[in-house]
Each structure stands twice: as structure tokens, then as C-alpha cells.
Amino acid sequence: MSLFNKMLASIGVGSAKVDTVLSKAVFHAGEVMEGVVKIYGGKTEQKIDALYLAVYTTYIRESDDRKFTDKAMIQKHKVLDGFTLAANEEKEIPFSFVLPFDTPVTKGATRVWIQTMLDIASAVDPTDKDYIQVEPTTLANTVLKEIENLGFRLRKAECEQASRKYRGVYPFMQEFEYVPMTGEFYGKLDEVEVVFLSQTPEKAELLLQIDRKARGFGGFLAEAMDQDETFVPLTVHKHETSEIKSRIYQLLRKYS
């Protein structure tokens, strides 16, 4: 390779391109993702240090009473170590990895995408961005469906910055905000927020924020001071899915 071509490659002119093709567009959290990364060589030979796939989402962060949208990496998976890509060469590299159980569900404003990255020293790294639809795990889906069966409707789903108390692996938590539309809790609760703190194949750790409707002057004072909200932890297991509706109902009745 001539010195001029090396300089072109180092600044990204005529360099490699990537395109990731997923086996499908809809995945469940915890499912194995499969696909192929297609790499197209440019006009010059290039040394590729590594090939990565990363799962990203966005979340809302508050600072000085202002809201900002940040992105967070959920997982980074190395597909391939270093290799040399010849000029005009084409490669197809299959991959598979497990989408983390705590991947946000793409409801409401939540977006999730797969970003493909070629790590090339001293160059503009080629990337590819593919949005995917993420459905909840079977256990999480049961929880959300049973809340709807109690007369609630999903009003908002959004990833927000996690407080220090509840911050885990990621800097955010996904909140599902439900409002009662029918049933026993209509007129008693303003809303119920559901947060999945962590999930595994066998269980899910939840946090319910139960917001009571103000009743009388004392109730309005409590609402103004945020004392009408109760935070209730809840753990559900895969083997007890038939009891989830009853357990949620008892908690909502207790704090409504």
C-alpha cells in the first residue's frame, strides 16, 4: 500500500463499511439474538483491530431542573478479534448473543438499537445502527398484563435516570406508568408506577410506586408534599405466575 493510500485509510476515505443483518426485528428480553455482520472493504487494505456489537438505549437525565436525553450501553459483545481486510474484500461474519433480561421494553418513548463497530486504529470507525423491537420476558409480561386486568391503562413508559438508592448495573430504570380507568381502584388511586429492578429466568424484582388520590384537605396537603406515594418492593417467581394478580391486588388494596 502506498503512503498516500495509508493516509487515506487513516482518515476514513475509501475505508471499510459494515452492515448488520439481524435474523428478525422483534426479540424478547433474554432471547438469543442471531444475525450476520457484512463487512465491505474500501479502496485500500485496512487492519481491523476488533468487531463489536453493542446494545444501546436512551434515558432521561435531570440536572439543574432541566431534562437531557443520554444514551446508555446495555451490553457490548466482541464478535471477532483483529484481522486484515483487503481492498474491495467482502466478509460475512455470523454472530449470536443473549439479549440481557434487563433490556428495556420498547414501549412508549423507549428505543433500543444494535450498534455495530469496527475498531480501526487511527481511523474513523465505521458503524451501523439497527433499531429493534424488544418485548418483555414472559414473567414481566404477566405482571404488566395482570395490572391491566385490574382496570389500569398504560399511560407512559420511559427510561429515567435511577436514583442512587435503586441504581444497579445501569444508570437508568424503565418506568411503566399506569392509571386506573375502571374497576375497584378507579377513584382511589391516581397512578401506579412499575419498575423492574432486576430480572433472571426464574424471578423478577419489582418496585411499585402507588399514588393515592387526594381525599379532603389533609389529602391535598399530603399530595402537595408527596406523602401520598408509597414505594412497595415485590418479588415474583416463574413458578407462581397464577398468584401474581392476587398479590398485586392485595398490595394495591392495602395502600389505596
Rank of each mutant, 00 (worst) to 15 (best):
E229W: 01
A86Y: 06
H77G: 00
I114S: 04
Q227S: 10
V21C: 11
T57S: 15
Q199E: 15
I120Y: 07
F196M: 14
A54Q: 11
V124D: 10
I39E: 04
K156C: 05
E158W: 01
L150W: 01
K76Y: 04
M1L: 07
T182P: 04
M225T: 12
G216K: 15
P94H: 05
K91S: 04
K203Y: 11
H239G: 03
Q227W: 14
G108S: 08
P100Y: 01
I248L: 13
T142Q: 05
L252N: 05
R164P: 09
G82H: 12
T103Y: 00
R66K: 15
Y186E: 15
Y186L: 15
V124W: 06
F101P: 00
H237A: 02
D130A: 08
R155D: 11
K245V: 00
L22Y: 07
K78S: 08
L197R: 05
Y52H: 10
R253E: 11
V124C: 03
D64L: 10
K165G: 02
L118T: 02
E146Y: 01
P171Y: 08
R253Y: 09
K254P: 03
G30H: 06
A157R: 02
L206Y: 05
N141W: 03
R164E: 14
D190G: 04
A9Q: 14
S163P: 00
T138K: 08
Y178D: 07
Y40V: 09
F217R: 15
T235I: 11
F172R: 02
T44V: 13
Y131P: 06
H28D: 03
A214P: 14
V192P: 00
A54T: 14
L154M: 12
K238P: 01
L144N: 03
N5F: 08
A109M: 09
L206D: 05
L53F: 06
V55E: 02
L221Q: 14
T138D: 06
L3P: 03
V98W: 05
V236E: 03
A123L: 09
T69A: 11
V18P: 02
V37M: 06
K6H: 13
Y40D: 04
M33N: 03
T69N: 09
D128K: 01
T138C: 02
E62R: 10
N88P: 00
D70C: 06
T230V: 12
L206T: 08
V55K: 02
F95V: 12
T110R: 00
T182I: 14
T57E: 10
T116W: 01
I244K: 01
H28S: 13
V37Q: 06
M1H: 11
A87V: 07
G35N: 08
S10N: 11
T106G: 06
L53W: 10
S96K: 13
L150H: 06
Y178Q: 08
D102I: 04
L80Y: 10
F172S: 03
K47S: 15
E223Y: 12
V143E: 00
G12C: 12
P233H: 00
G216R: 12
T241R: 09
E31D: 09
K38Y: 13
K107M: 15
A50P: 10
V37A: 09
A87G: 09
V194A: 01
M117H: 04
L221E: 13
K76H: 01
M1F: 07
G42P: 01
E148Y: 03
A25R: 14
A224L: 13
D119V: 15
R155K: 12
V36Y: 10
V13I: 15
D190R: 10
R247D: 05
Y56Q: 10
